[in-house]
Design a protein around this nucleic acid. Structure first.
Length: 812
RNA sequence: GGGCGAGUGGCGGAAUUGGUAUACGCGGAGGACUUAAAAUCCUCUGGAAGAAAUUCUGUGCGGGUUCGAGUCCCGCCUCGCCCACCA
């Protein structure tokens, strides 16, 4: 008989809710753990089966740890600010606060039907003024300490939507909403000085128990490169843009290179089109062409600049620099393969040893000079057909000839430094974090603009700066907050003159950079979280979420922790000691689930049809937590059969102990315990199924064994376990039970089937004690009928015996 | 182009980290129960040969190390994800 999940699951959910079973406090004399799942964006689509996977996994671990006496903080909340709600408002006029509220209620309902043991008293929403008050407060802390600043920068601009876009809203060079091409625009924006921590963020990765892949991505994103900044003097410099005014003032163009060893191979320089020296350097005969080229570069879409077509274009600007060592004339070009926001915005081109320079030089017929050869003796290769970028030995480099690339890097850097023509320099790809958005549905940046005093922080007592309601969501190129009347009735905090509020809001990644801190003390009105509570729980012991946050959220949150530690607000640098990524759950067709493909599985339907315990266990049983796995509803049917077996086995409870079952129980305890700790939930479920099959096949099951089994099952199937626990006569929740310990002697088999091999090929098996001596094992092995056949006329020259596993007889 | 990861039955996957390959589940075949079906239960289920015992073969492909390789080493192929003009 199947059990009725529609009856028992709501029953237990209501009881857990009523008793607030999972609320935790900072108890002394108890070990504690902080388990964190990446909080969801409460979309109108509701909970995804992918959410269920990571929440169920950490729920199982949390329930297990509580049964082991741990005090476990396992909170949930909502990353509630963001674009989809705002876009929906633009389309329908429904206020984002309303859609978000509905979505959160739906998420909460869904998560409760899954039986997740979150501490619901700590639920937070980043869109709640109670929360974003402290986002704003933290912004001001960064601002006070020069970690938040305002500067002009090129940003993504969608002309159709009239707004800047975050990088993540630019998909294949197009605006994700209207599909118009995105262009670069120079705008003044707010930044966080994450680059200050580039080195520390890089070094800190070393000790983290994170997936290698994520660490590699962060290293690459930070992109540390050590090299030399070299000055190239400009020797031909004739007139300014204004026309006839001659100006012979000498100056240098600094370039950054990681390959100073190739310095003697420089045949031209490239400046980024936006480089400020271009105006000064361009000669009159090239002036018009340069203006045209720069305008074209500026108009270039993101797609053209970074797309797969890496066609290199550029133009000579009429000027020439002097090689810092040889004094040779080096023509100066502009080309948009040089990027203004990396290094100095200028490149020394060495076409013989850099692929980009080679492509460019080939196209524009610029000289290619080889200065690195693969061996010391190698002569100059005639007619180079591609750049040689491997290490080697220097040639055509005067006094540096014969040096290895490694030695030459040092030697040439030394020479440049002693001649004051250059200096060693470290550069990073990492840019400061642009945090301002001309958007409505985010935390307002707590700054007041005064004509006299400039940017003034909003006094702490005036926080939160609440989002106004009287706005028009239609994009105009400015934040919708600009249109609010109430919002701007404000005086300068310093001089009290009428002033204007900053109308930009913060990137939602700011909200999520510190939410784990708020969970430790979510209702605090005095500060973002009581330092004692933060100290008790933090850092997070295990963080589970999708790999798509590898370089955005996870890097930002680390930056926040480093910065807050420096400001004395917290006592640790690294927020997440151990990180794991759950794999994607694909549609039944093996493709990524999407509405347009129609392959989305709704957890509500599975819960309705098979029950919460089934969806929890099925998602764990599908495969390894970190792998991508296709959904198959038939598989959920199998899990439900397994649960029904356990339900039906309660009718077999009798006093007598069954020796075989007892042994299996201890094996199961051992296996399930080890697997939960390793997050190998798929094999833990498999072990539970094996035991369930054995109970089904047994004539009777003792209550002792059945009840121990229920305890093992409880983290996976909390509703069914509670129900059966109650039905077997218990008043207290099964979750008050201690996790069982296995008896090593009992978990071990008295007799095991071992393979007998002859020359490595299995020729038979035998049942022996795993403790049998080698000589006895050998004797038994030789006696196995089929083995004896293979030994006939042969001599045993060697015996390999792995107790409990196999015997291998090596014969000649 | 670069980085990371993965290739095991019809399918999802397991394999104590070098020791009986395919656990567990799905699907399939046959049987029991039933007037019948569903549900449930039992048996079988990598391929080839054989009545059977058994033998050969088999973890993407080709080599190697080893008594023994899905696992380690070398060389390929295919797929997936992420990043991508960073000097």
């Amino acid at each position: 008989m199947p059990y009725n999940h529609l009856e028992i699951e709501p029953k237990w959910q209501a009881r857990w809710d009523k008793k607030q079973t999972n609320e935790v406090a900072e108890t002394k004399d108890q070990d504690h753990l902080y388990h964190l799942v990446m909080f969801p964006y409460p979309s109108g689509q509701g909970l995804h089966v992918g959410h269920v996977e990571s929440y169920a996994a950490l729920d199982i671990l949390s329930r297990y740890q509580r049964m082991n006496g741990q005090n476990v903080l396992f909170p949930i909340g909502y990353d509630a600010f963001g674009l989809p709600a705002e876009n929906y408002a633009i389309k329908t006029g429904t206020h984002p606060a309303a859609t978000t509220k509905t979505a959160i209620e739906n998420f909460r309902r869904q998560m409760k039907t899954i039986g997740l043991s979150f501490d619901w008293s700590r639920e937070i929403s980043t869109a709640d003024p109670e929360y974003y008050q402290w986002t704003q407060w933290l912004f001001l802390k960064l601002y006070e300490n020069d970690l938040a600043y305002r500067a002009k920068s090129p940003v993504n601009w969608c002309a159709s939507c009239q707004t800047v876009l975050a990088n993540e809203q630019v998909v294949d060079g197009q605006c994700e909403r209207c599909k118009n091409e995105v262009v670069q625009k120079e705008l003044e924006q707010w930044f966080f000085r994450i680059t200050k921590y580039a080195d520390q963020l890089l070094a800190g990765l070393e000790d983290l128990d994170w997936p290698h892949k994520i660490k590699a991505m962060q290293r690459h994103w930070i992109g540390k490169s050590e090299g030399v900044e070299i000055e190239f003097p400009v020797i031909r410099h004739e007139m300014s843009r204004q026309g006839n005014k001659f100006n012979y003032q000498e100056f240098n163009i600094p370039v950054f290179t990681t390959r100073p060893d190739t310095l003697m191979g420089v045949t031209y320089l490239v400046l980024a089109p936006e480089h400020p020296l271009v105006d000064e350097l361009t000669t009159p005969e090239f002036f018009e062409d340069v203006v045209a080229y720069r305008a074209a570069a500026r108009r270039k879409s993101e797609l053209e600049r970074t797309g797969l077509e890496k066609d290199k274009t550029g133009i000579f600007i009429g000027a020439t620099a002097k090689h810092p060592m040889t004094g040779a004339e080096v023509p100066i070009w502009i080309a948009d393969y040089a990027l203004m926001n990396y290094g100095t915005g200028a490149v020394m081109a060495v076409p013989a040893h850099d692929e980009r320079d080679f492509t460019f030089a080939s196209k524009y017929d610029l000289p290619i000079k080889q200065v690195i050869a693969s061996t010391e003796q190698a002569k100059r290769i005639k007619g180079i057909t591609k750049a040689y970028t491997e290490p080697g030995f220097l040639v055509n480099s005067g006094e540096f000839d014969g040096l290895t690339t490694e030695n030459a890097k040092q030697k040439i850097a030394d020479t440049l430094e002693s001649d004051e023509k250059g200096r060693r320099q470290t550069n990073y790809r990492l840019r400061d974090w642009l945090v301002s958005r001309q958007r409505y549905w985010g935390a307002p940046i707590p700054i007041i603009w005064c004509e006299q005093c400039g940017a003034q922080p909003v006094p702490v007592k005036d926080l939160p700066v609440v989002l106004p309601d009287d706005v028009d969501f239609k994009p105009t190129g400015e934040s919708p907050l600009v249109g609010s009347k109430d919002f701007h009735v404000v005086r300068c905090p310093k001089c009290k003159a009428p002033a204007r509020r900053e109308s930009d809001t913060m990137d939602t990644f700011v909200d999520s950079s510190w939410y784990y801190l708020r969970y430790t003390d979510p209702h605090n009105h005095e500060t973002f979280a009581d330092p004692k509570k933060v100290d008790y729980w933090c850092p997070v012991d295990l963080y589970l979420g999708g790999a798509e946050h590898a370089v955005m959220h996870l890097l930002y949150a680390r930056f926040f922790a480093y910065a807050l530690k420096d400001l004395g607000l917290i006592n640790f640098n690294e927020p997440f000691l151990k990180l794991r990524n759950q794999g994607l759950i694909l549609g039944p067709d093996g493709d990524k689930m999407s509405k347009s493909k129609g392959n989305v599985v709704n957890p509500d339907e599975i819960v309705e049809q098979f029950g919460a315990d089934t969806i929890r266990i099925y998602e764990m049983f599908m495969g390894p937590l970190e792998d991508a796995k296709p959904w198959n509803t038939e598989g959920a049917v199998g899990v439900r059969r397994f649960l029904d077996k356990i339900w039906n086995a309660k009718d077999k409870i009798h006093g007598a102990d069954e020796a075989g079952l007892k042994k299996l129980l201890h094996k199961t305890i051992k296996k399930v315990t080890a697997d939960i700790q390793d997050l190998k939930f798929n094999t833990a479920v498999s072990a539970l199924m094996i035991m369930a099959n054995a109970m089904q096949n047994a004539a009777m099951v003792s209550s002792g064994i059945y009840e121990k089994y229920l305890i093992l099952l409880a983290p996976f199937a909390p509703h069914l376990a509670e129900e059966l626990w109650e039905q077997t006569g218990h008043k207290e929740s099964i979750f008050n039970q201690a996790w069982p310990k296995h008896d090593e002697a009992l978990a071990k088999d008295d007799l095991v089937q071992v393979a007998v091999q002859v020359n490595g090929k299995v020729r038979g098996t035998m049942e022996i004690s795993p403790d049998l001596s080698e000589s006895d094992a050998r004797a038994r092995a030789e006696a196995v009928e089929n083995v004896a056949k293979h030994l006939e006329g042969k001599k045993i020259v060697k015996v390999i015996y792995i107790p409990g596993r196999m015997v291998n007889l090596v014969v000649k």
